[in-house]
């Protein structure tokens, strides 16, 4: 079968064929019979580039996303391992608080192990991360960053935890489209994404319930979901606040896919609620900038 004629025929019955080639993985699957009759090298160059766009970087994308997720999960796992190991020094009360942080630690450790298994199955050996790979003071290795108090202050530690969880949610959300050609990895990433959101919800409740030292600014009602671009955190340190705010930039949107959400459909939906109803993605570059101070 001649590829040119084949595509011409396809175009006759499916005028969107070229759009599909560019962006629609399902249709690409339906085109898979092309590969059985002809090597891609035989395909005209214009067509080849289209195929390349759809297929070419797919596997590299998946590996890159997984390696990125592996870094973030190690960051979280090492953070909570440190927290659980120093409950007394931080001042985490025994009971539900210690229990919740232990549950979260276990999940992050499991995510690390799971991602490593997936990476290995793709022939990738990820970097080795240890506690020494990270600086939870946010000092880029100086161990004297603006979050140093997290090691001895329960409220600061929870503020950092909330920021990590909310960032994790937004990071996975931003990377999901790069996994669209791999059903298994995409689904697993979404499953991790939801677990991180559950963590974020609970950490936020823990912060709200702190009788003192919660760092929740006056006039702010901290909820399990993100209101506008509010971090709900005031550390009293401008540098630390600015660093935290990077994790909430863009969450203030009240319109989705050009549909205004505020008071949509005649319902009384405030801007706060409109923003809360949708979490927003962060790009890899944004997330990298956020976590950079915490990576040695």
């Amino acid at each position: 079968m001649n590829v040119h004629n084949l595509l011409h025929e396809i175009e006759n019955v499916d005028p969107e064929v070229y759009d599909r080639l560019d962006s629609r993985r399902k249709v690409m699957k339906r085109f898979s019979f092309i590969g059985k009759t002809l090597a891609l090298a035989a395909v005209p160059s214009a067509l080849g580039s289209m195929f390349n766009k759809a297929y070419g970087q797919t596997n590299d994308d998946v590996k890159d996303v997984l390696l990125f997720a592996y870094l973030l999960e190690n960051l979280e796992a090492e953070f909570y391992k440190g927290v659980v190991g120093t409950f007394a020094a931080i001042g985490v009360p025994a009971g539900p608080a210690q229990g919740a942080l232990t549950v979260i630690r276990d999940h992050e450790v499991a995510h690390v192990a799971f991602l490593k298994t997936v990476l290995n199955s793709l022939g990738v050996t990820p970097p080795v991360y240890t506690a020494a790979s990270f600086d939870f003071t946010g000092g880029n290795g100086s161990r004297m960053g603006p979050f140093a108090a997290a090691a001895s202050n329960y409220g600061v530690m929870l503020a950092v935890a909330q920021t990590f969880e909310d960032t994790g949610v937004r990071a996975y959300k931003g990377q999901a489209p790069r996994l669209i050609n791999n059903n298994d990895v995409l689904t697993a990433a979404l499953q991790i994404h939801a677990v991180e959101a559950r963590h974020a919800s609970h950490i936020r409740q823990m912060r709200r319930n702190l009788a003192s030292g919660s760092l929740v600014p006056a006039g702010v009602t901290l909820q399990p979901w993100i209101t506008l671009a509010q971090s709900g955190i005031d550390t009293g340190n401008a540098g630390a606040n600015a660093a935290i705010q990077m994790s909430y930039a863009g969450e203030e949107v009240v319109s989705q896919a050009t549909v205004p959400i505020t008071n949509i459909g005649g319902a009384v939906i405030s801007a706060n609620e409109a923003s809360e109803a949708f979490d927003e993605p962060l790009t890899k570059a944004q997330v990298t900038a956020i976590v950079d101070p915490f990576v040695v």
Partner: peptide, 18 residues
């Protein structure tokens, strides 16, 4: 659409946890 679904599912997960 995947991104849109992602924007919603994490809010559902926040609800579920609460």
């Amino acid at each position: 659409y995947l991104t849109l679904a992602g924007k919603i599912v994490s809010v559902e997960a926040r609800h579920a946890a609460l």
